[in-house]
Design a protein around this nucleic acid. Structure first.
Lengths: 166, 166
DNA sequence: CTCAATGCAAAGTATTTGCACGCTC
DNA sequence: GAGCGTGCAAATACTTTGCATTGAG
């Protein structure tokens, strides 16, 4: 039994809820995945193990995991709620590449400190914070540069877009 | 004709689009409002001036304003897209009170600098960034403290929620 | 006179809820 | 056994799309 499972059980019991095979499986699949999962993603993973499980249960269980402090909701702005590990995981922020969708996690103690200072200045009691940097990752930048180079060699006036919208 | 209207017209023309009474009105109402508007909010405002205008047009025009650089999409995580002024407005971030929904805008040059430094470290080219601090604002904190105090005086075991969910 | 814009209704997404049945505690 | 949990379908909330009509350039 992992520490996370302990935490989950304790939360379950404290709230007078029940342990079920579905919840166990969903937690298990969630823990195995070190990525940002949407409910849909997790649903698909869980389905492979037990096709009878319902989408609704995954939604509900993710809420439960969030309450228990095991998961954290992250919204990247595409209308889908993603979840990531939150138990004994240091808080971190995200850079999102608008070209390839890659997500880079990073952490800066300075950043955290300044955020806290700003909050204190407004006598605002922080519950959580979320920082999202959107832009173009190193690889996509290189790819784009090469595309432009190729383009320059062709030297025609043909309109080709080297940058794409998301 | 304000500068913003110029910008809008230029964008319209550059893209071979057309100027319409609806677009003018929507832009006008948007400019008059120094708040974070959802499409729904703006729709209601615009309706007062011209009840024949459709929700769809407001959605479409807000996208247009965003393209033109006049508006900026902000998602606070409640599933609704909000828009705020973006033309010659300094970038700023938000603290959101989970009790009353109040939104406090703030800016920190240090914060911006560190974000840029973090991005540079990952050779990530920043397009935009978004920082959201969620917590409890000064007023709600005070209200909650007072509620707790009153509660303590009563001294009963009666369950009263001093904190509310959103 | 052409093509974009509009408004409506319908379709899409993502998520939540009502409900009858099944399973923990 | 009592009540929570489950899966389904339906509902909801926000946003986008198809389409016929209207209107700008």
């Amino acid at each position: 039994m992992t520490e996370e499972q302990e935490v989950f059980l304790q939360h379950i019991q404290k709230k007078g809820l029940k342990r079920t095979a579905q919840r166990d499986l969903i937690l298990d699949m969630f823990l195995r995945t070190e990525e940002h999962l949407s409910s849909e993603d997790l649903y698909r993973l869980v389905q492979k193990q037990d096709p009878t499980i319902g989408q609704t249960t995954v939604y509900r269980t993710l809420k439960l995991l969030t309450e228990a402090g095991l998961a954290r909701e992250v919204r990247f702005g595409d209308g889908v709620t993603h979840y990531e590990h939150n138990y004994k995981h240091q808080h971190h922020d995200h850079m999102i590449c608008s070209e390839c969708g890659r997500i880079i996690e990073f952490f800066s103690a300075e950043l955290e400190a300044i955020q806290d200072a700003m909050a204190a200045k407004h006598r605002f009691q922080v519950t959580q914070h979320l920082l999202r940097i959107i832009g173009i990752c190193a690889e996509c930048r290189r790819a784009l540069r090469e595309a432009d180079k190729a383009q320059a060699l062709v030297g025609t006036g043909a309109k080709q877009t080297s940058a794409r919208a998301r």
